[in-house]
Write a protein that binds this DNA or RNA. Structure first.
Lengths: 335, 335
DNA sequence: AGTGCAATTGACAGCGCTGTCATTTTCATT
DNA sequence: AATGAAAATGACAGCGCTGTCAATTGCACT
């Protein structure tokens, strides 16, 4: 039989309210009382009834993760991070896939929120840049945290990574390995990350006193297919690069595939770098050198910020989390 | 201001209880009354307070999805199916990643369930075969639906697909295309699907009056790497197969990759079939002919079964959902 | 010992809904 | 028109918790 707060109160010889105070970490409880209550609660394996709590406090103890991201991997990691953050705080995560292409996405969200009011929302890209959505959330006054938004809103805290710096590091790593002829494959032009990653590449090249060879910078759109096209251009040009940095793993995989078809050995004749550290990066042969985004960490941080918002005075406009350059087998020193 | 059931009751000129009955589709309400209440509810944009409902009815209107599956794609699809099923019934889905390798997985689950009691649980593989977990669920008397379990429990309804039949169809398709020398790459020996898929292959070969060439049946473990090894064996043997059926897409991708390295053209010289229809299957060049599992559908069905359990008299031991043979570019007629 | 103030504790209502059971209405049948 | 059973409706308590506010206790200081 599940025990209630009343059971704990009786057993500990205090009032329900005091038990409630202890369980919610409210101040003004004598240390001794607090310990006794905690001990009894543990003994009785008490855990509060979420519905009752929610009803009384008009909180839901629920966070929602909104997404419309084609990458299951990205979503899975964000989810995991958010769930882990929720777990210790008695919160839970509900997930809400949303379809970007529907015309009335704002209404759809509003309807969902009416049915299931949540205490906060995690917005993942590309949803975090949708004006309709943001308007609805502001109007409904629901706290939210955008993950990796294009433009940082000035009124809410967001969570992100530094694409420019990551891209800089990958490029610098290649240059440090003696590569001078560098190729770059851009991402989808409408994706803000594309610009940033290219920027980091340019910065690193220039920082090394080299020059960006614009003929070796090719457009792509993050798809494997576009990577194939780009790789064909780069690998059949007369001044073939010795290293190619693709803006994501799918395109990097395409480079490896095209190289293999053309009899160019990776990493012997060509180093290849990707971005994202998708499962693909380890499936491939050779395994891809790539950038691991702090996806899990961003999910974790976003949830934490919603559960325990920092005081207004030490609110940061955004939290930038650490990425990691993962060196695997697709890159090596230039001969 | 959010409206309550009382508002609707007043506006419709009935009692709260009648409104409640209408909203819960209970019988014994005059058709006229029902319509009136529904109209008012719509007008007021009323939607019930989940917490209050849960508290009063001691139901949670929450379903949990338990998983420890390395494939984000699989999970994402199950989730999507389950969520869509929940959406129309006022249910919501919370997700619970669980770690198979922890020693006290049963306790961990029990703890979670104490904190967040749910009305039902969807168990995905490989969790659905864990005795500890099943014991806990039975003891706690929480309804659950296993998805694609190895052994069908006799007391609960499960949801699955027909691996044997799917595998049979792929093989038959290859044979129908004139292939006589067929290679097969097995899956992980401890995964029940491996056996079933191999069985379907054997059945189809024999049904066609052919014989299974055991030299062309190679072990694998579902990983890309194991696929590479298997492909090397198959493609360098003197009696090279004209078609290879790999037990999953990762291994099929490995076959394509090895073939390309060896100068064997796919599908010109070699047809390749996979299983799962992972995103990889479409990323690859050529795109993989494969089997699409009804993952979304299984998630949907599992949730539906929990939300609205069939009457005991027409309970089925399991629901087998339709897979689909997806013919893409990695297979063609044998010359 | 007496005073005042802060720290601690408790009594109680009520969050929005559903379950129970009593009451009223409807309607086929005599 | 009278009767009875079934259908429709409503009154009310109470689910388990927290917010409000009042009551009590502890303690430093006269």
């Amino acid at each position: 039989m599940k025990s209630t707060i009343t059971d704990v109160a009786k057993q500990a010889g205090v009032s329900m309210k005091t038990v409630s105070r202890v369980l919610n970490n409210e101040p003004n409880v004598a240390q001794k009382t607090r310990e006794r209550v905690l001990a009894v609660a543990k003994e009785l394996r008490y855990s509060p009834n979420l519905a009752a709590r929610g009803l009384a406090s008009s909180k839901s103890y629920l966070l929602a993760l909104l997404y419309d991201n084609p990458s299951p991997n990205y979503i899975a990691n964000i989810q995991k991070g958010a769930i882990d953050a929720c777990r210790d705080s008695g919160y839970h995560l509900v997930i809400e896939p949303l379809n970007m292409n529907m015309d009335d996405i704002g209404d759809a969200l509003e309807l969902r929120l009416e049915r299931l009011p949540v205490d906060g929302i995690i917005l993942t890209p590309p949803l975090c840049d949708d004006e309709n959505l943001l308007d609805v959330l502001k109007r409904l006054k629901i706290p939210y945290v955008p993950v990796a938004p294009s433009r940082e809103p000035d009124d809410v805290t967001s969570v992100k990574m530094d694409d420019v710096q990551a891209s800089f590091e990958m490029t610098e790593y290649m240059i440090r390995n003696g590569h001078k002829k560098l190729g770059f494959i851009k991402g989808h032009p409408e994706h803000s990350a594309s610009t940033l990653r290219y920027l980091g590449f340019v910065k690193a090249v220039e920082a090394a006193g080299l020059e960006v060879d614009l003929d070796a910078v090719v457009d792509g759109d993050f798809s494997f297919k576009s990577g194939v096209k780009a790789a064909e251009v780069l690998l059949t040009s007369k001044e073939r690069p010795t290293a190619i940095f693709a803006s994501n793993d799918d395109m990097a995989a395409a480079v490896v595939s095209v190289a293999s078809r053309l009899g160019i050995s990776v990493p012997g004749d060509l180093s290849v770098g990707g971005f994202d550290d998708t499962p693909l990066a380890q499936i491939l042969y050779p395994q891809l050198t790539t950038i691991k985004q702090p996806i899990y960490e961003m999910g974790h941080m976003a949830a934490s910020l919603l559960i325990k918002p920092p005081k207004p005075e030490d609110r940061l406009p955004s939290y930038c989390l650490d990425h990691k350059l993962i060196i695997r087998d697709s890159t090596q020193k230039s001969e």
